[in-house]
Design a protein around this nucleic acid. Sequence first.
DNA 1: GCATCGGTGCTAAATTTTTAGCAAGGTGCT
DNA 2: AGCACCTTGCTAAAAATTTAGCACCGATGC
Lengths: 114, 114
Amino acid sequence: MLDILYRCGQATAAEIHAGMQDPPSYSAVRALLRVLEEKGHIRHREKNLRYVYLPVVPREKASRSAVAHLLDTFFDGSAEQAVATLLDVSGSKLSDEDFERLSALIEKARKEGR
Amino acid sequence: MLDILYRCGQATAAEIHAGMQDPPSYSAVRALLRVLEEKGHIRHREKNLRYVYLPVVPREKASRSAVAHLLDTFFDGSAEQAVATLLDVSGSKLSDEDFERLSALIEKARKEGR
DNA sequence: GCATCGGTGCTAAATTTTTAGCAAGGTGCT
DNA sequence: AGCACCTTGCTAAAAATTTAGCACCGATGC
């Protein structure tokens, strides 16, 4: 559910329920949203009578945590291994300009890194 | 729990319990391991009378799924954005040789990509 | 105005998960 | 052998989650 919120930015209970791949009942989704809000993971705004939920931790910050976690879980903390499978996964979807930009990113990081 | 298994390769119930950051009871961990095994996510080997659990999906494959999911959830599918925060997270831990190797990886992928 | 359509808040029951604790059985030590 | 010690298998109760369904409220349309 949090993944859906991070993908969409914000969503109603119905949207979240629809977006799940193996969804429990709509009731369960509503109940869980209440729990997540209670625990401070999400909050809601009332937008013309509907609740629109959004994550409390901003996407940028959450993404950093997620990347760090992934690095730790699957790649022994190695950025190289991570980039290798990232390139593998992105596979043929990358254009020449994409490769340019990736190189530029690394070059930039190398210079700024010290 | 699966994260721990992927980090360690394999682990006993006690090790998994110890490795969790906000662990439920040992009983709950054992019960959940049974459920995960029932559902086919993990299996166990008996190593001198102890159950050693391991993931069914190999680390390599799981890591690819995880990267794809992360890309989708936080980076709109953009490898560049992902690499940018990856570099940001790895930050100053990267040596000059690391940068070399990263460049080489990208160069290699560019050539092989077509 | 009035009926209808959604969505929320709530309740209560069914189901699942979590918990503690016990017996059984193997290991290692004395 | 006898005795801790540890792990599994099991049970049963407690706690949490999941579920369906209802009343209420505002908006929409006739």
